[in-house]
């Protein structure tokens, strides 16, 4: 290899490491800016503390209400997104003809491209009033509405990953089942879904991770009360919206400021773990089917 070729190769390699640099940078920033908050409150009382009053005197920095809000909203969202997302994937993969597929897949993808601020806005002006009336609540901006909207947003994620998982199930499985006299539903239910099962479960895990990171939607529709929710209709304040809403008021370098980075750290760790789990399951799934990872 000539020298000039080597220079290109090495330059490209350095650039290719930029993603790693950014990822490392994110981790460093979260630690450096977040740790001072832990040193004020202690890690455990920060994470498990039940009250978040960052601006009262003395301030209290316990993020359990925020974590639990994130989980309630995300799990609730998945209750909508899993059946509809996976059902849509099964429909597209098993029932839709070529023409319908050409139309449905792009539409689902378009749904996924709509920015979260638009979903949040839609949820705030259309869905929240509807929920308020329907359930006779004092406000429609609550965990339930948040879960509903986030669920809709997660449909495309769940659907497209589940569809990918279905599409790599070998054709021979299906043919073998048909040859044994099973009809399409039995084949789907007893052969294809079990075969694609772990692939589909990555869709669920990634869906949760994505939903937990959503910011603008929950900021606009979940109401924003930093309390551990006692019902699905309680107004809640998930981690993401806390960061987004309060960063503007937090004095740079103050404990509140660092606490918001610490929330970012907790959020980052949770989503990282979920993504790793999804990657691990997905890798095993592809190996099981004898595909490249």
């Amino acid at each position: 290899m000539k020298i000039s070729e080597k220079i290109y190769k090495n330059t490209f390699m350095v650039v290719a490491f930029s993603s790693l640099v950014f990822l490392t940078g994110i981790v460093l920033v979260l630690f450096i800016e977040g740790l001072p908050a832990f040193s004020v409150t202690g890690v455990l009382s920060f994470i498990f503390g039940k009250s978040w009053y960052p601006t009262s005197t003395p301030p209290e920095f316990g993020i359990m209400p925020l974590i639990s809000a994130s989980f309630v909203v995300s799990v609730g969202a998945m209750l909508f997104a899993i059946p509809i997302g996976i059902g849509s994937a099964l429909y597209i993969h098993e029932i839709a003809g070529e023409k319908q597929k050409m139309f449905l897949k792009p539409i689902i993808e378009l749904l996924g491209a709509i920015p979260s601020i638009i979903f949040g806005f839609f949820g705030m002006v259309i869905v929240a009033p509807l929920v308020q009336k329907l359930f006779n609540l004092s406000t429609g901006q609550c965990a339930f509405t948040g879960a509903l909207i986030l669920g809709v947003m997660a449909i495309p994620v769940v659907c497209s990953i589940a569809e990918d998982a279905l599409s790599v199930v070998p054709r021979s499985f299906r043919e073998a089942s048909f040859a044994l006299g099973a009809n399409r539903w039995q084949t789907l239910w007893k052969v294809i879904i079990p075969a694609a099962g772990s692939g589909i479960s990555t869709a669920i895990v990634l869906g949760i991770s994505r939903v937990m990171g959503e910011t603008m939607t929950v900021l606009l529709v979940t109401g924003g009360a930093a309390q551990i929710p006692n019902s699905i209709f309680s107004p809640v304040r998930p981690m993401t919206s806390t960061i987004a809403a309060e960063m503007g008021e937090a004095a740079v370098g103050g404990t509140h400021f660092h606490a918001l980075f610490a929330i970012g750290l907790v959020l980052f760790v949770i989503t990282l773990i979920l993504n790793m789990i999804a990657e691990y399951i997905g890798r095993k799934y592809r190996l099981k089917l004898g595909l490249d990872v």
């Binding site: 993603s19 800016e33 959503e214």
Partner: peptide, 21 residues
């Protein structure tokens, strides 16, 4: 692995990174 995980970082965390850096 870095690319995949960077893709999964919540957008508000990018905001924190941008703010700090």
């Amino acid at each position: 692995l870095s690319v995949n995980n960077l893709a999964g970082v919540p957008s508000v965390v990018f905001g924190l990174f941008g703010l700090a850096v």
